[in-house]
């Protein structure tokens, strides 16, 4: 009986352990964006509560943020962002679900900086679009720093800029992602 229990543990128990060992995560990822058109006006904000999960075995990569978590320097800009542009009451979350295309080129057991190509679906303001971008994974002492920068168009996500402010707000938004991922040790 003990032998059977041991065998079952080795089959299923270690399986669960290995699956947990494959996943890295954070709940304090940083996502920064800027869409400044005029040099006189700084339109940028930071969200420091992004969640991110990377499955190193499959290369699956997911991000999620609460839109209301973006902080601007000016309160009025933050209110306009939430109420008029992102409609965060109606669309509270934004998320990305994708894949590291060159995951097999990354040696997760060896420290180093690895270039990645990521492709997936980005959902903002209730609209979902395909995106593909490059980024880096920095492996250091058992942790992974995932970073990337890419541009999106507001018009792709049905976010309208009123003509009165179109000289200040650019349609092209530059997004920067910076996540320090640690090993997920299971529930």
């Amino acid at each position: 009986m003990k032998k059977i229990s041991l065998i079952l543990f080795l089959i299923f128990g270690t399986g669960i352990f290995l699956r947990a060992q494959d996943k890295f995560y954070t709940k304090t990822g940083t996502i920064f964006f800027k869409c400044t058109k005029s040099p006189l006006e700084k339109i940028e904000a930071t969200n420091r509560s992004a969640t991110c999960v990377l499955d190193t075995k499959t290369g699956s990569l997911q991000f999620a943020i609460l839109v209301k978590g973006f902080e601007f320097e000016r309160a009025l800009m933050q209110e306009h962002f939430n109420e008029n542009y992102m409609e965060s009451g109606k669309f509270p979350r934004s998320e990305f679900k994708g894949q590291i295309l060159n995951n097999n080129e990354i040696n997760y057991t060896k420290d180093g900086i690895y270039k990645t190509t990521v492709k997936g679906r980005l959902q903002i303001h209730g609209e979902t679009k395909d995106v593909e971008t490059i980024g880096t994974l920095t492996l250091k002492e058992g942790k992974i720093i995932a970073s990337s920068g890419f541009d999106i168009l507001l018009s792709d996500y049905n976010i309208r800029i009123p003509s009165i402010v179109s000289d200040k707000i650019a349609n092209k938004v530059n997004i920067t992602i910076d996540c320090d991922l640690e090993l997920f040790k299971g529930k």
Partner: peptide
């Protein structure tokens, strides 16, 4: 700013 529910996390 809201509530995040994730199956894994």
């Amino acid at each position: 700013t809201g509530f995040n529910a994730d199956e894994l996390l």
